[in-house]
Design a protein around this nucleic acid. Structure first.
Lengths: 112, 112
DNA sequence: CACCTATATATCGTCCGGCTATACATAGAG
DNA sequence: CTCTATGTATAGCCGGACGATATATAGGTG
């Protein structure tokens, strides 16, 4: 029940979250997973079955690009954001802010 | 493209928005649609094909209840929130606030 | 050695739900 | 009489999050 809520919340903001993590510096999947979990205080547990297909999708949309590399330890697929990805991120951040404001105004004083 | 983003954003927050609108005073579908559109400054255009199935779902979950009434003009289906709906609303408002804070922290200074 | 856990990526199938398209009905304006 | 706004409803499509599952390796423990 409560889990389902988070699942749906993710749908609109997951691209945004992953893009913003990758935008900082190159990341690989498992690290992104940990970063988001940490940043959310353990609230957002991003399953591998969600994360990897998502990364593939973002790459197919040319928002990120990848290369395999073993020189920093284990064999990992590193992702970095593209110029197109940066543009998209900017747009989505603005949309998120507007949207969040709209929801806040609707729920009004109900915050408890 | 941009529309798709809003579509997914809705998934996690639409129940919440509709419940919070109905929580104020009894509403009928078409009015809810207008209220949300207005509150979002025209950004959220809730299609009828989204709204009515949603209302049916909320009613089947006993979060709202309905009755037909013509005394205030045209024949309309009025919805009011139930006790169960109020409880759910409280929970979802809290979840939304936590989640929004999490996303904000991830996107950090990127706000433009 | 065997076993276990953490690390690391990948894919299949299911399920959910928002949206387009379509339908139907009435009130008011032109 | 037509056109637009109002008002509700449903069928079917489709994208995407997720559980389950698979595979591989590094490091620690008994």
């Amino acid at each position: 029940m409560s889990e389902k809520f988070q699942r749906d919340l993710l749908r609109g903001s997951l691209d945004l979250m992953v893009l913003s993590v990758v935008a900082g510096e190159p990341q690989y999947g498992y690290l992104i997973q940990k970063r988001i979990n940490l940043a959310s205080d353990g609230q957002v547990k991003l399953p591998a079955g969600t994360l990897y297909p998502l990364l593939h999708r973002l790459e197919s949309e040319k928002l990120i690009r990848s290369k395999w590399d073993s020189s920093t330890g284990r064999k990992r697929k590193w992702y970095e954001i593209t110029a197109k990805g940066k543009k998209r991120l900017t747009v989505q951040v603005n949309q998120w802010n507007q949207y969040a404001e709209c929801v806040s105004s609707l729920i009004g004083g109900l915050t408890s």
